[in-house]
Simulated scan of single mutants.
Amino acid sequence: MKLLLCTLFLLGSFSSLAEPMQPQAAIMAKKASQTLLTDIVNHGQGLVAVGKYGNILTSKDAINWQQAQVPVNVLLTSVFFIDDQLGWATGHDATILHTQDGGLTWQLQNYQPEVDKPLLDILFFDNKNGIAIGAYGLFYRTTDAGQTWQSEFQSTLLYDEDVEFLEELKQSDNDAYLNEIKAILPHLNQVTFYQGKLLMVGELGLIATSEDLGKTWQRLEEIYPGSFFDIKVLNNGQWLVAGLRGNVFFSEDEGVNWLAIDTQSQSTVNQILVTETGALLSANNGVYLHFENKEIVKKQHADGKALLSAVKHNKTIVFASEVGIQVQESK
């Protein structure tokens, strides 16, 4: 859950171990798979999950997990693969990691503890061009597969009154202006790429779209004042957004009009997994929601722990959770 990710700054170290797995390495990997994991993805080589202490875990069967070689011990928040081999992960201290071997080993591309802000999501459009987003409008772009990352201030996300305020401040006190732009934008929580358009959600009800790969943005009309943590386009073309206190909305006209969904829950929704017939929503308190035909079916994981992300693997749903990997039979 992004709310949790923004508050867990003081985390200890954790060993990174290489293959082949020795008994002690297997024990450590098992322990890592039972601690906070924030994101999980499925790609050609198998499953990759990231989380606390810089842990990155890989698995081919969702049962046996290996701990990847990672050069940092910060809380990692998101992982993305463009193909079977090339992937990136983000985390606190503006951390960006890169793998070229399907997640087995990782190299550091960006690390700025002086920024003191987490990156919360990362997305690549191809194997060269990508963006990373995070707290207080943190936004980085690369055009060379992450060899270099350039910070961008997304001024088109500002309200008109903020634009006027910043212009006046810049004229009167440039140092104050430079400090203000570091905090004036909302947290940017998640971004999706769909048919050439970017969809992004964040703090304070932010839903925004971009048709030029994030160089400029158009804010959609506010439908809820709280934070959204995910947005996805379903297979039937519906847009689905979800966030704080179980608030979920869908649109059948690309964000022009939205309808609220009764989730029968006030548990914050952390992630949306698109399925063949709808979506699966991972939420706090062990809640997960099946969305299909404009209706929600609520289910409850027995231990009541936060479910932060999910993927479908064979006939199971594999969750990244507050207490590590959780496996549930698919309906």
Results as ranks from 00 to 15, higher is better:
residue 2 K to S: 08
residue 3 L to K: 06
residue 4 L to R: 09
residue 20 P to M: 05
residue 20 P to H: 05
residue 20 P to Y: 01
residue 24 Q to S: 10
residue 39 D to F: 02
residue 42 N to S: 12
residue 43 H to D: 05
residue 48 V to E: 00
residue 52 K to E: 11
residue 52 K to C: 04
residue 54 G to A: 04
residue 62 A to S: 14
residue 74 V to T: 12
residue 81 F to G: 01
residue 85 Q to H: 10
residue 85 Q to M: 05
residue 86 L to N: 09
residue 93 D to E: 13
residue 95 T to G: 08
residue 96 I to N: 04
residue 108 L to Q: 10
residue 109 Q to F: 02
residue 111 Y to G: 00
residue 112 Q to M: 09
residue 119 L to W: 08
residue 120 L to G: 03
residue 121 D to G: 08
residue 122 I to F: 06
residue 127 N to G: 01
residue 131 I to M: 05
residue 134 G to N: 01
residue 135 A to M: 15
residue 138 L to W: 08
residue 140 Y to V: 05
residue 140 Y to T: 02
residue 144 D to V: 13
residue 144 D to E: 14
residue 146 G to H: 13
residue 147 Q to I: 15
residue 150 Q to W: 03
residue 152 E to V: 14
residue 154 Q to H: 00
residue 154 Q to I: 03
residue 155 S to I: 09
residue 166 L to P: 09
residue 167 E to C: 01
residue 168 E to Q: 14
residue 173 D to Y: 09
residue 174 N to K: 10
residue 180 E to V: 03
residue 183 A to E: 12
residue 187 H to P: 08
residue 193 F to S: 07
residue 207 I to M: 09
residue 211 E to G: 09
residue 211 E to V: 14
residue 214 G to M: 11
residue 216 T to M: 15
residue 220 L to P: 13
residue 226 G to Q: 00
residue 230 D to F: 00
residue 239 W to D: 01
residue 246 G to P: 08
residue 251 S to H: 12
residue 257 N to L: 10
residue 262 D to G: 00
residue 270 N to S: 14
residue 274 V to G: 15
residue 274 V to T: 14
residue 282 S to G: 12
residue 284 N to W: 12
residue 288 Y to R: 08
residue 290 H to V: 15
residue 292 E to V: 15
residue 292 E to D: 04
residue 295 E to A: 15
residue 298 K to Q: 10
residue 298 K to E: 00
residue 299 K to T: 02
residue 299 K to H: 14
residue 301 H to W: 12
residue 310 A to Y: 05
residue 312 K to S: 12
residue 313 H to V: 05
residue 320 A to D: 09
residue 321 S to Q: 06
residue 322 E to P: 04
residue 331 K to V: 14
